[in-house]
């Protein structure tokens, strides 16, 4: 087996949090005495990523996603455990590690707010010590991929969210990192920008072999990009598998969506459960282990007047939400 590009082994990280009391009197008390409680942000987290893998890293807020990313990028030192990124221990070689990774936060830009985009890029060249030849090559390539040149002279504060995200992605990649951490890269973007960002991430991963860790709440991102998904909750990895395996493990059910010719009808069958109905469209659910899909469909088409019919997997949101329910998250 090749050496993993990212190795995480039994990482533990605890935080001490000051308790705030409520009310005016509580605030007064807080001035004098403060109580703390300890929380385990990461509780023996382990995983490995091969060079060029693209993995989705999901979990509810506060589950430990960003703590993991902070450990991997060398910002945080864990309490215990082992971790290597491209052969380096991130927190021991912060600077060397930083030169080899790129990080994008969807909520925050790393560009200089009041300056034209190109000036931020130029400054990053100096910060990352990129040679001018390499810099221009990398910049022009990224600009061509995401159509950035028209944005060069616009101050960042005047960019739309989608434009800004494209610039931020480029900014994180100017120094040609071998690992990219993306935190909610599509948050708040319009549909077109989302597609553009996803397309770019996919190409980056396929064509350049950049290892990508993607944390997101947008399950369409996961569906579009990730073969492998890791789910974290309460500081532990709950599931680490391909998307299909995760689906199969959490639920076997399939969706049956029927467009009826006559909206007065109600569909009744012992093997299906009713979910919802809007106008002529009825959403049903069945277990393919109990009844053969083909048999069920022929039975229903024989019995009712049907315009159209499809079988689908339940949406990924639902699978994740079930997984959370199983582990009593939220």
């Amino acid at each position: 087996m090749p050496v993993p590009h990212i190795l995480v082994e039994n990482i533990v990280k605890t935080f001490r949090i000051a308790q705030r009391r409520s009310g005016l009197w509580g605030a007064f008390q807080g001035v004098l005495r403060r109580e703390y409680r300890t929380i385990k942000a990461l509780d023996r987290v382990s995983f490995e990523l091969a060079q060029g893998e693209l993995v989705g890293y999901i979990g509810p807020n506060g589950a430990g996603k960003s703590t993991t990313v902070k450990v991997l990028s060398g910002i945080l030192v864990p309490d215990s455990g082992r971790c290597e990124v491209d052969g380096r221990v991130p927190w021991r070689n912060r600077i060397a590690n930083a030169a080899n990774i790129g990080v994008v936060f969807g909520q925050r830009t790393q560009l200089w707010w009041d300056l034209p985009v190109i000036e931020s890029f130029d400054l990053l060249r100096d910060i990352y010590r990129i040679g001018s030849g390499e810099y221009e090559r990398a910049r022009d390539e990224l600009a061509a991929l995401m159509d950035l040149e028209p944005l060069y002279d616009i101050p960042v504060r005047q960019l739309s969210l989608g434009q800004r995200m494209r610039c931020d992605l480029a900014a994180a990649l100017l120094h040609a990192p071998s690992v990219l951490f993306l935190d909610e890269p599509t948050i708040g973007l319009d549909a077109v920008s989302k597609l553009a960002v996803r397309d770019f991430i996919k190409r980056l991963n396929r064509e350049r072999g950049v290892t990508v860790v993607l944390t997101t709440h947008d399950m369409d991102d996961i569906e579009a990009l990730c073969e492998r998904v890791m789910v974290i909750g309460h500081g532990s990895i709950l599931s680490d598998s391909t998307l299909d395996d995760l689906r199969a493990r959490v639920t076997r059910e399939r969706r049956l969506i029927i467009d009826l010719l006559d909206d007065g009808q109600a569909i009744e069958d012992p093997d299906v459960d009713f979910i919802s109905r809007s106008g002529n469209r009825v959403h049903l659910q069945f277990d393919p282990d109990r009844v053969q899909t083909a048999a069920l469909i022929s039975r229903i088409t024989a019995k009712y007047a049907i315009k159209d019919l499809y079988v689908e997997n339940p949406p990924i949101e639902e699978i994740i939400s079930r997984l959370y329910d199983e582990h009593e998250l939220r």
Binding site: I95, A98, I101, V103, F105, R108, I127
Partner: peptide, 18 residues
């Protein structure tokens, strides 16, 4: 508080210089 300091730690330069 705003997380900007983390951004400085993500860059391969000394924090004092930044």
């Amino acid at each position: 508080r705003t997380g900007e300091f983390d951004r400085m730690l993500l860059r391969p330069r000394s924090t004092v210089l930044q």
